[in-house]
């Protein structure tokens, strides 16, 4: 059984936010909701310091705590490892948001328009309907499962100008991402929580 995963090469990432824009464009998430985001990270001590970008999103953990705490079964994991939310089942208890060590989840209190006072544009209405966003539920990155099912890469991977992101099957030892993780010692965020994320980072 495949285990879909992603590798982010921090040496190549320029912090340009193209992944954030591509994700917004693909999923038309409401204002304030960022399935993909980039934070700046500082390492080292003066005078040897480095400020570098750290792209963050749902880690699609092999043992997702969000799925375990979900009381309704709205958060589910597919056979290929993609963790997604069934908006028709979510009751908005937000236990998953508390449980997620990566703060990858957002609560859709209301489907706010991008242009305040003008209501939802036809573009927003279309995407809210097609993506199934429901007010009062929690939302997060779904690894672009519709694109993946159609044989494409997730939008953030396809649109990264620095080719810093790789997508593939972690369970296949010969796949590109497995080789990258192995050869360049890919690291997971918060390994101490035992969630076994499917997103690896290649250190600078």
């Amino acid at each position: 059984m495949p285990r879909l995963g992603m590798v982010i090469d921090l040496k190549k990432c320029a912090g340009c936010y193209a992944c954030v824009a591509a994700c917004k464009s693909e999923h038309a998430t409401p204002p304030g909701v960022f399935w993909c985001r980039v934070v700046k990270q500082e390492t080292g001590t003066y005078p040897r310091v480095r400020r570098s970008p750290l792209p963050l999103a749902c880690m699609h953990c092999a043992d997702p705590p969000c799925e375990q705490v979900c009381p309704t079964g709205a958060t589910q994991k597919r056979a290929d490892g993609v963790v997604f939310i069934d908006y028709t089942q979510c009751m908005g208890c937000r236990a998953c948001m508390i449980a997620c060590p990566y703060q990858a989840r957002y609560f859709l209190a209301e489907l706010r328009p991008y242009y305040e006072g003008q209501g939802l544009t036809p573009y927003e209405q279309f995407h809210n309907a097609t993506n199934g966003y429901v007010e009062g539920t929690v939302t997060k990155c779904d690894f672009c499962k519709d694109r993946v099912d159609a044989g494409k890469e997730p939008a953030c991977v396809a649109n990264c100008p620095g080719k810093a992101r790789y997508f593939g099957d972690l369970s296949d030892p010969d796949s590109e991402i497995s080789r990258l993780v192995r050869d360049r010692r890919g690291l997971q965020l918060h390994p101490e929580f035992g969630t076994n994320p499917s997103v690896y980072y290649l250190p600078i």
Binding site: V69, P71, G73, Q89, R94, F107, L108, T137, V138
Partner: peptide, 25 residues
């Protein structure tokens, strides 16, 4: 009052095997 979709609260009974919210309910 806290739930985003209170009409779905009955669904919280579904996962007592892993969820403490289900067990508590």
């Amino acid at each position: 009052a806290y739930l985003g979709r209170p009409e779905r609260c009955w669904r919280a009974l579904k996962r007592p095997r892993t969820s403490w919210i289900s067990r508590g309910l």
